[in-house]
Design a binder for these strands. Sequence first.
DNA 1: CTGAAAGCGCTTACAG
DNA 2: CTGAAAGCGCTTACAG
Lengths: 331, 331
Amino acid sequence: MKKRVSIKDIASDVGVSTALVSYVLNNKKEGRISKEVAAKIKQAAIDLNYVPNQIARSLKSQKTNTIGLIVADIANPYSSQIARIIEDEAQKHDYSVIFGSSDESAEKTQNLILLLLNRQVDGFIIALPEHAEKQLSYLNGIGIPFVLFDRYYPEIETNFVAIDNYKAASEAIQHLRDNGRKQIGIVSYETSLYHLSERKRGATDLLQDSSMVVNVRINHLDEDVKEGIDKLLNIEDPIDALFFTTNLLAISGLKYLNSLEIKVPEQIAVVGFDETDAFDLFYAPVTYVKQPMEELASQSLKLLLDAIADPETKQSVILDTELVVRKSSVL
Amino acid sequence: MKKRVSIKDIASDVGVSTALVSYVLNNKKEGRISKEVAAKIKQAAIDLNYVPNQIARSLKSQKTNTIGLIVADIANPYSSQIARIIEDEAQKHDYSVIFGSSDESAEKTQNLILLLLNRQVDGFIIALPEHAEKQLSYLNGIGIPFVLFDRYYPEIETNFVAIDNYKAASEAIQHLRDNGRKQIGIVSYETSLYHLSERKRGATDLLQDSSMVVNVRINHLDEDVKEGIDKLLNIEDPIDALFFTTNLLAISGLKYLNSLEIKVPEQIAVVGFDETDAFDLFYAPVTYVKQPMEELASQSLKLLLDAIADPETKQSVILDTELVVRKSSVL
DNA sequence: CTGAAAGCGCTTACAG
DNA sequence: CTGAAAGCGCTTACAG
């Protein structure tokens, strides 16, 4: 590759010091530099196709204008939608984004944190997996600005942005009841993740019989979904509705209902969580809990920038969801 | 934020020069350094929670071990799947990924290239939008290693990884014919993008009547899809099959067929392009052209690493697709 | 076996 | 209005 042109090349081209070039290109000391020289420098920069070396600048300034984004899996639509919005917002503020996928593993999260710290990111936006208390306190320990989103640990003080999961689930269940459903099954994950527990709690608090909850192991998703639904269909008072607490669970469950030729909503009413094209294409478009993605992402970035500006601030934002009612839950 | 610990801190802690610390931590000059000192240095690094500053190293080495990934839109499943695989592969080779979304705009692509060049990425993996010849020659001009994927410009010599779009489309059409379909409509974009032209060409070469092609404007997607399908349904010999050349087109089209209560595959057989959950959940699971995502992504990275190692190499890889046949196209 | 020193490409306080 | 110089945190050729 050709040698990149540096400030030095411009300086020698114009016949001034590198300091002057730097001042001009950064619009520092305006008015205190003769217009002719400034113009010559700017022209030379263009002529030589100069691209500033952010690495060198970062080393000096101790700021990389880069943020680390750790999601569960960038291939998951929820994560990639968030990533996209953060990308756009970050760009507005002159930040770049390096991302990493944790696969819901605390260990991978730790590796990613180290890797990104290596890259001297100015801060993190993180969706933390289960059992990541150690990582949380590590981040707190080194004092790097960070914001949790989607998931958070209520007992530890941090910056975070999340939705009101309890309320979201309550509303979903209430909606099913308002539409005459009596036996509502909940399909969720077997997890200690706070946001999912809250969804479960929001749903079950409205229901009497907690045995209607299916706890799916994430690495046996389809299998456990099938088994769980089978169970709920074969109890004394079989279910007439299902609430899925995540996207992936809903897709898996709907496929299974299809294979059983169970009619939605006639036999089973369905409510899902999060938006997906798949819900639209289902013969009975699926009612779902819609998260305010734009807000989630942009607030996460805002809080991070605030934290970078002042590491002492700790802010939290809890956003409301919206139940988008469609055919799958209404007769 | 607390001051990060540097090689200097370790050096003064142990009582040696920074050079020695660097050698030990990088396992250089092994055997030529006393074991005791080496051990002390390593221990101190751990004790002090040392994280090497990749920025400083990059400045010196002129390598950032970072690659720039430019996709059309990271929120699009195709892009995010690719991104995920590249992330994993890159990590294996000690590379990080900074990504950006071009929104199919050559201008945004240019901005992203500059932004990432700023960040001193070692190379690019890019899905180029339409009319990006200028960007291509810019990249060639500055001599930075890069690999095109998905889309490429056949008349310009570059590294690229793509699928055989012509063949993929031919196979899809042939499959529909083998299943007795006579009047096959093609829904594609109005675009000069080579890979999409090839899909169109692959399809139409097998068909006599080219008026069966609908060219959708990307920013009037739903509208044009409807209009196009309406037209194909109302010609003298109405269609009995539809081939959608992309994911988004298929989803839009299927929604419209749903609203018209047209039965798939009884009235219209359907073949889509690319995998999506939505295809699985459709009442007649959709037959689709499956791209080898793993191969696409890992080959892209491989070619890039090759190009970084030797900027003179120009390699291209064309991969085969697979037609996944399901209910939507078979009676 | 170990250290002093230069240098990567910038920025910026200081001096003139 | 402009420049010489130090320094960000590393690496590495050179000297001893």
